[in-house]
Nucleic acid binder design. Sequence first.
DNA 1: GTGAAAGCGCTAACAT
DNA 2: ATGTTAGCGCTTTCAC
Lengths: 338, 338
Amino acid sequence: MVTIEDVARRAGVAPSTVSYALSGKRSISERTRERVERAVAELGYRPHAGARALASARTSTLGLMIPLRQGVDVNVMMQFVLGIVTRAREFDHDVLLVTQDEDAGLERLTGGRMVDALILMDVEAADPRVGRAARLAQPTILIGLPDDPQGLHCVDFDFDAAARLAVRHLADLGHTSIGLVGPPPAVLERHTSFAERLLHGFREQVERSGVTGLVELTPPTHAGALAAVEALRGASEPPTALVVHNEAALPWVVDALQMHGAGIPTDVSLVAICPAAVAQSQSRPVSFIDLPATTIGAVAVEMAMDRLEEQGGAAETRLLGPVLVDQGSTAPPPHVSP
Amino acid sequence: MVTIEDVARRAGVAPSTVSYALSGKRSISERTRERVERAVAELGYRPHAGARALASARTSTLGLMIPLRQGVDVNVMMQFVLGIVTRAREFDHDVLLVTQDEDAGLERLTGGRMVDALILMDVEAADPRVGRAARLAQPTILIGLPDDPQGLHCVDFDFDAAARLAVRHLADLGHTSIGLVGPPPAVLERHTSFAERLLHGFREQVERSGVTGLVELTPPTHAGALAAVEALRGASEPPTALVVHNEAALPWVVDALQMHGAGIPTDVSLVAICPAAVAQSQSRPVSFIDLPATTIGAVAVEMAMDRLEEQGGAAETRLLGPVLVDQGSTAPPPHVSP
DNA sequence: GTGAAAGCGCTAACAT
DNA sequence: ATGTTAGCGCTTTCAC
């Protein structure tokens, strides 16, 4: 293995100089810097991560706890991971994976000084991990919004605002009855914070706009979507607009509407709340409110890095605001003249 | 931070004794072992991963390179990851993530001695990573089967045998025309080894069984599946049986058949090649050949651990054999008496 | 602007 | 069965 000493010898300088030349933690003459860089390149030197961690108490590694739960959409999850890994690399950090169900994972990564900071995905309203994470030496960033963050930083999409935006948009078009095709019942039963916030926003805006709101929790299957659509269309005031917050069910909902002979947007307007990639991979264009999963992941990393720079700082919660992208799947309801 | 010395003091033994008591690398008296364990528990001692890596040249970490490519099914991918992470933990290892598109990832993880071994997912027929991996100090396991493994170990599902099994099963039932609903064209264009092997097995067994074989490469969309089903049913010899190797399109194929009024299995038999979880989450039972992604991931870890134990050993390739699970979606063709 | 040297916390000979 | 000790490769005072 080629060590820092080999590089130093080759460059004709002291090991510490090589270290400083590489880290930039003190000024180096241009001449020396070049010699070092050439030696590094010629020898193919790579600092030993363990030695570095031991000496500097920094690992250049972030811990990421990912869920393996029912009802969590894998596509969305992968977007989070993509955002995290990509941004972490830009900060010269790697990502160590732990799964939700591995109970001692948090303590192992942090206690063993394997990571500089921790990112917890899919944090629920009352998540037992929050209390444990708050007790750790390393900073922890939560993706999600627990009832009590206990001083930890949080990032999430503003689901409440997203639902309100969707309802307002539809109500402004003239719709007086709006349906919500929500996540599977299991997701709500877990008290997943995001589902509850979305529901809250939906109900609130429905009331404010003075329209009727109907909610169907929907499994991500053809049968489930069909049942949801049927239930909604069979209601006393059948909705003329649908908000879909269930990426897996979205294609089935579109399908079910077509089977019902309901044209989009002539008979029924449609707004999805999902990552742009999901909306754009549908067989027909669907207006959507972007769930910016990749961005949220990137922001989580940035917050972690901020905390590593400056120890102080109060707990911050960042909720990313919703943006509606109109792709023509919404219009005024059929029986209202424009 | 509580160190091994603190533990040693508390237990009244030497630091090395603590090390040995914890690793079990030499025999320890019952009495000493207990004292050490108690001290560890009382102090909440966690070995410093970096220090350990530096002293032992072992990191207890596996590197995992995951694809972020088009056409790779995320559900299947997550199953691989799940299998890998779970089995790795059973060997007391953690998993460090790199993405395919991060070019220097391999060299950074291995050169920096961040990992003991490497697992590369989604290896293609002519994958440039293979040559680079073969040159590394750490053992590398490939998930997939390149044309030339260059001395590296490989694990994969035997797609060739799976296709043959599917065709044979259907031919034995009396079908004389069999359709293959394959992956999206993009997957084949990349020379993804698994898609080619499946196609090869399909064509070979079709010939051997003396039946007609039709192939449709299919995008994972409703429209794509519909088009594929229509193309097949409009052929001069419309297939009475379908093999579907495209988890994302599977539900749409089932849907399209229903729209065509084709009963399953009365009019058309169906065999899917996909993870059991995918087959079982369909709206109706589908006979399938299990794509054991979790197991493959676990096997990859085991092979990596084997290589770490004993340096020698020739390059091994393990292809997991197919098993057909009949869930009643196959039957003799309609116009053949039993 | 550069060097010398003292650890960081652990493992693994080498002793006994 | 246990203790002593010499590093592992790096960062970071401290000194010049």
